[in-house]
């Protein structure tokens, strides 16, 4: 396949970025999207140019490190996968592909396609946990949890924290991310004790960090590589209201 790539290049956070166009020929359709960028980078290095900086690590859709806004969609044109799982067979020969970083105020660009997502860690630090100390936990089977609740909790816990939901949202809202964590614990008896406190603190931090409001368009759900459901947002709203009145 022959491709034209329009890639966002930005030397550092405060610098002005711009699109640069590259031609790339002879790419196998079985190549993954990131392998295609590897090939581009090899070429750039050969031409004494700086390679394009992008984040990635596991390359199997679980670490949440890869990002990329590809032709206007977080993680590109395929559904329910991350950029690292995207393959070139999803594009036409001769296609022009526009590649941008996540664009959201709480995720400033660090360089080229790399953004700073530590805001997510800060939200988790506010209450995305159950406060247990190491050691002294009761026997695991002393807490019975219905399969239904365990499964729902797992559905929410599957979030990989990539930030696609924020990038997809016109308001840069982090509701899907935050609600997934709130839901995971709200659905488990272990998590109930601190539920009120948790949701209040996490939501407050989300607001403080400049994430926008949810206006119920659900682009987040549509673009989530792990199919995290919007029902988590509804659950979080219930939790939040309960926490406020209690």
């Amino acid at each position: 396949m022959n491709l034209t790539l329009k890639i966002w290049r930005q030397p550092h956070t405060r610098a002005k970025g711009k699109f640069i166009t590259y031609r790339l020929d002879d790419i196998s359709p079985n190549c993954s999207f990131l392998e295609m960028l590897d090939i581009l980078n090899e070429q750039l290095i050969g031409n004494d140019e700086e390679p394009v900086a992008f984040d990635h690590d596991c390359r199997e859709g679980i670490c949440g490190m890869c990002s990329l806004y590809i032709n206007g969609r977080p993680h590109g044109p395929d559904d329910a996968i991350t950029t690292c799982q995207l393959h070139m067979r999803k594009f036409r020969d001769g296609a022009t592909i526009v590649i941008e970083p996540w664009r959201a105020k709480p995720f400033p660009v660090i360089k080229d396609l790399i953004v700073d997502r530590t805001a997510f860690d800060r939200i988790i630090q506010e209450g995305g946990y159950i406060s247990v100390h190491t050691g002294g936990a009761p026997d695991a089977n002393s807490i019975l949890i219905s399969k239904e609740h365990a499964d729902l909790s797992m559905d929410a816990a599957a979030c990989i924290g990539c930030g696609a939901c924020v990038a997809a949202c016109k308001n840069a809202s982090a509701m899907l991310f935050v609600s997934a964590k709130v839901s995971q614990f709200a659905l488990l008896p272990q998590g109930k004790v601190e539920a009120n406190d948790r949701v209040k603190k996490m939501v407050a931090m989300m607001d403080e960090l400049g994430f926008g409001n949810c206006t119920n368009t659900y682009a987040c759900e549509a673009e989530c590589p792990k199919l995290i459901s919007r029902s988590n947002i509804a659950r979080m709203n219930r939790e939040f209201i309960c926490a406020k009145v209690s």
């Binding site: 399969k147 797992m154 995971q184 272990q190």
Partner: peptide, 22 residues
Amino acid sequence: GSIIDQCVAQGVPFAREYGGML
């Protein structure tokens, strides 16, 4: 065994049987 106890206490959603056991 303590690892499993610890993880369950932390809210790790391990797979369960219909009776609610791990």
